[in-house]
Design a protein around this nucleic acid. Sequence first.
DNA 1: CTTATTGTGATTATTCGAGTTAAAATAGCA
DNA 2: TGCTATTTTAACTCGAATAATCACAATAAG
Lengths: 276, 276
Amino acid sequence: MEDISDREQAIELLQQLGLQEYEAKAFVALTRLPHGTAKDISEISEVPRTRVYDAVRVLESKGLVEIQHSNPQQFRAVSIDEAADTLQREYRTRTETLRDTLDTIEPTSTDVEADVPHEVWALSGTTAITSRTQQLLSEAEEEIVFVLGDESVFTESLVESLNTARKREVRVMIGTTAESVQNRVQDSLPEAEVFVSGLEWLSESAPPADDTEISRMVLIDRSTILVSTFHQTPGDEREHEQAVFGRGFDNGLVTLARRLMATGLPSVESSESTEQ
Amino acid sequence: MEDISDREQAIELLQQLGLQEYEAKAFVALTRLPHGTAKDISEISEVPRTRVYDAVRVLESKGLVEIQHSNPQQFRAVSIDEAADTLQREYRTRTETLRDTLDTIEPTSTDVEADVPHEVWALSGTTAITSRTQQLLSEAEEEIVFVLGDESVFTESLVESLNTARKREVRVMIGTTAESVQNRVQDSLPEAEVFVSGLEWLSESAPPADDTEISRMVLIDRSTILVSTFHQTPGDEREHEQAVFGRGFDNGLVTLARRLMATGLPSVESSESTEQ
DNA sequence: CTTATTGTGATTATTCGAGTTAAAATAGCA
DNA sequence: TGCTATTTTAACTCGAATAATCACAATAAG
C-alpha cells in the first residue's frame, strides 16, 4: 500500500495550493469514491464528521466538488483533470494579474545598473540562477569562461546564448570535468575553445560526506563571476542550487576566481597576453 | 496616486500565491527600487525593519530576490517577468504533480454512473458549470433545449458541442431572451431551432434589488436539467455563477423545468407529441 | 413513539503569523 | 582603543485563524 504516502503527498500539495487541511483531506477522500456522505468521507480521511460539511462547502465554492442536497447529503469530486485544470487556471490568472499590476506600479524604472565595485550577490533556485547567467552572458563584451561542473546545466538555451556571444566577437571558452562531455560540447559549439578543466576538486567532495558540488562557474570579461553549487539536503530528497555572483575587476571573489582559472587552465594565462 | 491601491492589490495577490504578508510587502517595495537596504524596505513597505531580514531570506529561497551580503545588506528583486514566471512555474509543477499523484491513488474506478432518480446536485463556479454542461450535452440522445439567459455563455466551444450533438441526430433548440442575440445564434447554428423565449421573468429581477439572474437553462432528453444563475454579491465586485442539475424524468426539478419550458415555449408542446 | 443518524452551531484548544523587544554583531568616529 | 550609532539576529508576546470537540436540533428509520 504505497498509496498512503501518495495520499499524504496529494494532501500536502493541495494545501500548498491554498486548501485547508480538512479541505485537502476531504477532497482526496472523495477522489477515491464515486460519491459519498459526510460519514464516508470522515472515515476515509480522518476529518471529524461534523467538520466535513464546512470543508466540502468550501470545495464546492471552488468548483472542486458537487453537492447533492438529499438526506444524507451526497458529495462527489469533479474529475481529477478538471480539478487540476481549475486550480491551475486560478493561479495562472493570479500570476498574470500580478504581472500587470506590478508593471503599473513600477513604471519600469530603466535605470542603468550602477557598476558598484565589490558587490557580491547571493541567489538561489535553478530558475533564478539560469536567468542571471543568461543575462551575464548577454552582457559579455570580450570573453566568457564557462566551467561546467554538472552536465545538467548544459542546455539548449545555454548553447544559444553562447553562440550569440560568439557572433559578437566574444571569445568563448568552455571547461568540462569529464572528457565524455567535452565532445558533446565541442559539437554544439564548434567555435568555442573547449578544454578539460584541471580543477579536479570541482567534482570532488571536500569535507566529509558533503553533498555540495560545483554546478557552474562563469567568468565574464575577467570582471564578473558567477559560481553556483548544487546542494543535497540530507533529509530532503530535492536538491537546491545556490549561487553567488560578483562584479568588479578588483572584487575579491572575482580575483579569486581569476586566479583559480589561471591555475586550473594554463591556456588562459597565454590568452590574456594575446587578446587583451 | 492610484498606485496605492495597485500596491495593495499586488500584495494581496502575492499572498494568495503563497507568500506571507511581510514577504509580499517587502517584495512589492523592492520592486520599486533598483536595490535597497532593510531600512529602505521597511520605510516603503511598513514592515518592521527587524523582520525584513526573515522575509527577504524567504524571498531569496524562492528565487524572487537577490541578496548582497555586505553591511548593510543590499537586496534586490528579480525582474517582474522573472518573478511572475517563477511563481507560475512553481504552481504549474504543483498542479501537474497533483494530477499524477491523484491518478495513482485512484485507479480510475470506472463504475457506471448509477442512474439514481431524483438526484439533484449543486455546483458553483463558471468553470465547473461549463464543464458539467458540456458533459450533459455530449450525453444527449434525442433533444437539447438550451435557454441563454446571459449572452456570455454563448461561446465557441458551446457552439461546437451543439453542432456535434446535431450530427448525432439530436434535436437542438436554443432559446434567447433578446432578439438581437437570436440572429447571432442562428448564424452559428444553422441547423438548430432558435426562438425567443416567452419566459420574460428570466431577465427580470424578481425580489427587490436581487442581483441574481438566470444564466443558462439546459434540458437534455426531457430527463436531465441544469439551471445556473449569476449572482452579484453586494460588497464584492466579482460575480459568481451557481447551478443545480438534476436527473430522472420524474425528478421534481426536471418536471418543473419541463412544465416551464412547455409554458414558455409553445412550440415544445407540439414536438412532445410528435417526437416521443 | 423511540432511537439512530445526520446536520448545524457554538465552544475550546492549538497553531501560526504579525508585531514588539532585547541583545549581539558590526561599523564609524573621537 | 573605547564609545556610540546602526545593523542584524533572536526570542518573546499577542491575537487571529484553524483544528478539534461538544452539545443540540433536525431528520429518517423502525
